[in-house]
Amino acid sequence: MSQYRKNFWRGAFAAAAVAGFVTSAMAQSELKIMAPAAPGGGWDQTARSMQQALTQSGIVKSVQVTNVPGAGGSIGIAQFVNGAKGDGSQLMVMGYVMVGALLTNKSPVTLDQTTPIARLTGEYEAIVVPAGSPIKTAKDLAAAVKADPAKVTWAGGSAGGVDHIAAALFAKAVGADPTKINYIPFSGGGESLAAILGGKVTAGIAGYGEFESQIKAGKLRLIGLTTPKGTPEMPSLKEQGVDLEIANWRAVVAAPGLSADQKKTLSETVDKLAKSKEWGEILKQKGWDDAYLSGDAFAKFLVEENTRTKEVLTSVGLVKP
């Protein structure tokens, strides 16, 4: 099902593997992973899956997961940056949502203060409409947004989150005013899905996984994915002339003030994890796509995403310039 997605990430994966390949005898015996969210959420699941794969494969002897929930990770990162400074045995899980949350919450702590290690997983966004909608393709939707952005209502996740950013980018890409989009944030996946199925909104936007079974059951029509390249059944927006690429990724970062050696050891640990059989199985089981990217390539990626997100959030009006 996700062949095309695999291919995309694989390119990045190979490049990173070459760049990040270094041998070292030093191994990690203890690791603390912070999930800056409550137990059960996506980041927590990532942290606990890492814990499981790292200990089962014997890469690290003991791994401890701590949860510091709150405000899209703003609280976790503040505690991490202050509390783990110079500690080479601590990692924090983070993701695209945190980039936006730090900006909208005006967090005094920023991602620059962490040491980037690697991106691990990613999921593309999908735009859908109810099955009975007159909108059939991305072109139709683009035309509707262009004609009157107010009349096209979008249902998605929290304000300033990845769904919101994707909707704004869509408007921008088709030449409409992104400040005029009528985006309606819902609290949970189920609630927004119900609003789309009930025809209360024009379109819905979320990670593909949330819509998968509804699309297959014929209750929702897939308009496009935010991938560079799709398939005939699952077209990408880009192939339909809407220049929009975005993914909801998850990554790990380390504390500030690490020595080169400490950073290298951590990177190698995560590298071994990403290539382990156990991690591969977890990815398959959870339906996460491998988006491994490490070293300088990841650091650069993080900076780029931060810049782009700031731009979008400012253009939507969620962040004051």
């Binding site: 059960g40 949970g188 996946g189 189920g190 609630e191 899905l193 119900a194 199925l197 079974s213 509804q214």
Partner: peptide
């Protein structure tokens, strides 16, 4: 019936 998780437990 729909795959809609409408509570935290249902989501889990």
């Amino acid at each position: 019936a729909l795959g809609l998780p409408t509570s935290a437990t249902a989501a889990m």
